[in-house]
Simulated scan of single mutants.
Amino acid sequence: MFKGSKIRLTAIRKEDLPTYRQWTSVESFGRFYSSSPIREESEKNATQLIDDHSDRSYRFAIRPLNSEDFLGVCAIEEIEWPHRVAWTSIALGPKFQGKGFGKDAMTLLVNYAFNELNLHRLSLTVFSYNQGAITLYESLGFKHEGTYREFLQRDSKRHDMHLYGMLATDVK
Protein backbone atom coordinates (compact mmCIF):
# COMPACT_ATOMS: atom_id res chain seq x y z
CA MET A 1 0.00 0.00 0.00
CA PHE A 2 2.88 2.38 0.71
CA LYS A 3 5.33 1.22 -1.98
CA GLY A 4 5.27 2.28 -5.59
CA SER A 5 7.61 1.59 -8.48
CA LYS A 6 10.06 4.36 -7.47
CA ILE A 7 9.18 5.51 -3.97
CA ARG A 8 7.61 4.58 -0.68
CA LEU A 9 5.60 6.61 1.79
CA THR A 10 6.69 6.69 5.43
CA ALA A 11 6.11 8.78 8.51
CA ILE A 12 7.74 12.21 8.48
CA ARG A 13 10.67 12.11 10.88
CA LYS A 14 12.23 14.78 13.04
CA GLU A 15 15.46 14.52 11.04
CA ASP A 16 13.52 15.43 7.84
CA LEU A 17 12.46 18.82 9.19
CA PRO A 18 15.70 20.80 8.64
CA THR A 19 15.65 19.82 4.96
CA TYR A 20 11.97 20.68 4.64
CA ARG A 21 12.55 24.06 6.33
CA GLN A 22 15.42 24.85 3.94
CA TRP A 23 13.32 23.90 0.90
CA THR A 24 10.62 26.40 1.85
CA SER A 25 13.07 29.22 1.17
CA VAL A 26 13.95 27.91 -2.31
CA GLU A 27 11.95 29.49 -5.15
CA SER A 28 11.44 26.27 -7.13
CA PHE A 29 9.81 24.70 -4.05
CA GLY A 30 8.04 27.58 -2.32
CA ARG A 31 6.38 29.07 -5.39
CA PHE A 32 4.75 25.77 -6.30
CA TYR A 33 3.82 24.73 -2.76
CA SER A 34 2.31 27.82 -1.19
CA SER A 35 0.80 31.21 -1.99
CA SER A 36 2.67 32.66 1.01
CA PRO A 37 5.81 34.71 0.45
CA ILE A 38 8.92 32.57 0.20
CA ARG A 39 10.75 32.24 3.49
CA GLU A 40 12.24 29.50 5.58
CA GLU A 41 9.54 27.77 7.60
CA SER A 42 9.85 28.23 11.34
CA GLU A 43 10.85 25.23 13.41
CA LYS A 44 7.52 25.42 15.26
CA ASN A 45 5.48 25.34 12.03
CA ALA A 46 7.59 22.55 10.53
CA THR A 47 7.19 20.47 13.66
CA GLN A 48 3.43 20.49 13.13
CA LEU A 49 4.02 18.18 10.15
CA ILE A 50 4.87 15.38 12.57
CA ASP A 51 2.91 16.47 15.64
CA ASP A 52 -0.60 16.43 14.16
CA HIS A 53 -2.03 13.02 15.05
CA SER A 54 -5.68 13.86 14.49
CA ASP A 55 -7.94 11.64 12.46
CA ARG A 56 -8.43 14.53 9.99
CA SER A 57 -4.88 14.49 8.62
CA TYR A 58 -2.55 11.85 7.16
CA ARG A 59 0.90 13.16 6.20
CA PHE A 60 3.73 11.17 4.67
CA ALA A 61 7.37 11.55 3.75
CA ILE A 62 8.32 10.48 0.24
CA ARG A 63 11.46 8.31 0.14
CA PRO A 64 13.21 6.21 -2.52
CA LEU A 65 12.58 2.48 -2.33
CA ASN A 66 16.10 1.63 -1.16
CA SER A 67 17.20 4.51 1.06
CA GLU A 68 16.08 6.81 3.84
CA ASP A 69 16.61 9.97 1.74
CA PHE A 70 13.86 12.54 2.14
CA LEU A 71 12.40 13.51 -1.26
CA GLY A 72 9.29 15.44 -0.21
CA VAL A 73 5.94 15.36 1.55
CA CYS A 74 2.38 14.47 0.61
CA ALA A 75 -0.83 14.54 2.57
CA ILE A 76 -4.53 13.91 2.85
CA GLU A 77 -5.85 16.67 5.09
CA GLU A 78 -8.92 18.47 6.39
CA ILE A 79 -10.93 15.26 6.16
CA GLU A 80 -14.64 15.77 6.69
CA TRP A 81 -15.63 12.24 7.71
CA PRO A 82 -19.43 12.70 7.59
CA HIS A 83 -19.09 13.67 3.92
CA ARG A 84 -16.05 11.48 3.11
CA VAL A 85 -14.17 14.38 1.47
CA ALA A 86 -10.63 15.71 1.93
CA TRP A 87 -7.88 17.88 0.47
CA THR A 88 -4.64 16.47 -0.86
CA SER A 89 -1.22 17.99 -1.50
CA ILE A 90 2.29 17.06 -2.55
CA ALA A 91 5.63 18.87 -2.56
CA LEU A 92 8.92 17.47 -3.79
CA GLY A 93 12.32 18.91 -3.00
CA PRO A 94 13.80 20.99 -5.85
CA LYS A 95 16.26 18.27 -6.95
CA PHE A 96 13.53 15.62 -7.12
CA GLN A 97 10.95 17.32 -9.33
CA GLY A 98 10.25 16.01 -12.83
CA LYS A 99 11.60 12.49 -12.20
CA GLY A 100 8.32 10.58 -11.78
CA PHE A 101 8.41 10.54 -7.98
CA GLY A 102 5.34 12.77 -7.78
CA LYS A 103 3.21 10.53 -9.98
CA ASP A 104 4.22 7.48 -7.98
CA ALA A 105 3.49 9.22 -4.67
CA MET A 106 0.14 10.64 -5.79
CA THR A 107 -0.92 7.25 -7.14
CA LEU A 108 -0.24 5.71 -3.72
CA LEU A 109 -1.97 8.60 -1.94
CA VAL A 110 -5.10 8.36 -4.12
CA ASN A 111 -5.22 4.59 -3.58
CA TYR A 112 -4.90 5.08 0.19
CA ALA A 113 -7.59 7.77 0.25
CA PHE A 114 -10.19 5.77 -1.66
CA ASN A 115 -9.37 2.18 -0.70
CA GLU A 116 -8.14 2.45 2.89
CA LEU A 117 -9.78 5.61 4.23
CA ASN A 118 -12.91 4.97 2.15
CA LEU A 119 -13.14 8.61 1.06
CA HIS A 120 -15.45 9.62 -1.77
CA ARG A 121 -13.75 12.84 -2.95
CA LEU A 122 -10.30 14.45 -3.00
CA SER A 123 -9.75 18.13 -3.80
CA LEU A 124 -6.60 20.10 -4.52
CA THR A 125 -5.53 23.50 -5.77
CA VAL A 126 -2.71 24.29 -8.17
CA PHE A 127 -1.31 27.56 -9.51
CA SER A 128 -1.81 28.15 -13.23
CA TYR A 129 1.94 28.46 -13.87
CA ASN A 130 2.63 24.96 -12.44
CA GLN A 131 2.02 23.12 -15.70
CA GLY A 132 3.96 20.04 -14.60
CA ALA A 133 1.63 19.52 -11.64
CA ILE A 134 -1.48 20.19 -13.76
CA THR A 135 -0.36 17.55 -16.26
CA LEU A 136 0.28 15.10 -13.41
CA TYR A 137 -3.09 15.65 -11.75
CA GLU A 138 -5.01 15.33 -15.00
CA SER A 139 -3.10 12.14 -15.90
CA LEU A 140 -4.27 10.62 -12.60
CA GLY A 141 -7.91 11.49 -13.30
CA PHE A 142 -8.37 14.76 -11.38
CA LYS A 143 -10.91 17.02 -13.10
CA HIS A 144 -10.64 20.80 -13.40
CA GLU A 145 -13.63 22.12 -11.46
CA GLY A 146 -13.03 25.83 -11.30
CA THR A 147 -10.61 28.72 -11.25
CA TYR A 148 -9.89 31.38 -8.67
CA ARG A 149 -9.06 34.13 -11.15
CA GLU A 150 -5.99 36.28 -10.48
CA PHE A 151 -5.62 34.63 -7.07
CA LEU A 152 -1.99 35.54 -6.45
CA GLN A 153 0.64 37.98 -7.58
CA ARG A 154 4.19 36.92 -8.34
CA ASP A 155 6.80 39.10 -10.01
CA SER A 156 4.27 41.84 -10.78
CA LYS A 157 1.94 39.42 -12.61
CA ARG A 158 -1.42 38.02 -11.54
CA HIS A 159 -1.91 34.23 -11.67
CA ASP A 160 -4.96 32.02 -11.40
CA MET A 161 -5.34 29.16 -8.96
CA HIS A 162 -7.22 26.12 -10.25
CA LEU A 163 -9.45 23.81 -8.24
CA TYR A 164 -9.27 20.11 -9.13
CA GLY A 165 -11.30 17.23 -7.78
CA MET A 166 -11.43 13.49 -8.03
CA LEU A 167 -14.21 11.12 -7.03
CA ALA A 168 -13.62 7.51 -6.11
CA THR A 169 -15.39 6.60 -9.35
CA ASP A 170 -12.85 8.67 -11.37
CA VAL A 171 -9.83 6.54 -10.44
CA LYS A 172 -7.99 5.32 -13.54
Rank of each mutant, 00 (worst) to 15 (best):
L65G: 04
L108M: 15
L152W: 00
L163G: 00
R39C: 05
I7C: 13
R39W: 00
R149I: 09
M106I: 06
D104G: 08
Q131V: 13
V126G: 03
D104W: 05
S35Q: 08
E78T: 11
D52P: 05
G98C: 09
R13Y: 11
P37M: 02
D104C: 07
T47D: 11
M1N: 12
D69W: 00
R84L: 14
S36T: 06
S28G: 02
S123F: 11
I90R: 05
F101P: 01
A11D: 14
S67A: 14
D170M: 08
L71T: 02
S139Y: 07
F151S: 14
S156I: 00
A75F: 03
S57I: 09
F127C: 01
D69S: 14
F32P: 00
S36K: 15
D16Q: 08
A86M: 10
A113G: 13
N111F: 10
K103A: 07
F114E: 10
A61C: 07
I38N: 01
I90A: 08
Q48M: 12
P64V: 09
L49H: 13
A75H: 02
L152T: 13
L71M: 13
A75Y: 02
H159E: 13
I12E: 05
W23K: 04
T147K: 09
G141R: 05
R8W: 06
E138A: 09
F114W: 08
E145Q: 13
L71F: 11
K14F: 10
M106R: 04
F101Q: 03
I76H: 05
T47Y: 14
R121K: 15
L152Y: 02
P82Y: 07
G132T: 04
D51V: 00
L9D: 04
I90D: 02
D155G: 13
E77G: 14
S34G: 01
L124Q: 10
A61T: 03
N45V: 12
D155C: 00
S139H: 09
R84M: 13
H53W: 02
L119D: 02
S57V: 11
H162Y: 15
E40H: 01
K14M: 12
L65I: 14
A113M: 11
Q97R: 06
L124P: 07
G93F: 08
S42V: 01
S123Y: 13
L163N: 02
L167H: 06
T47K: 14
K44V: 14
L124F: 08
Q22P: 00
D16A: 09
T147D: 01
N45G: 00
L122P: 10
F114N: 08
L140V: 07
F151G: 01
I38R: 07
F142H: 06
L122T: 09
Y20R: 08
D160G: 07
F32V: 00
E80S: 10
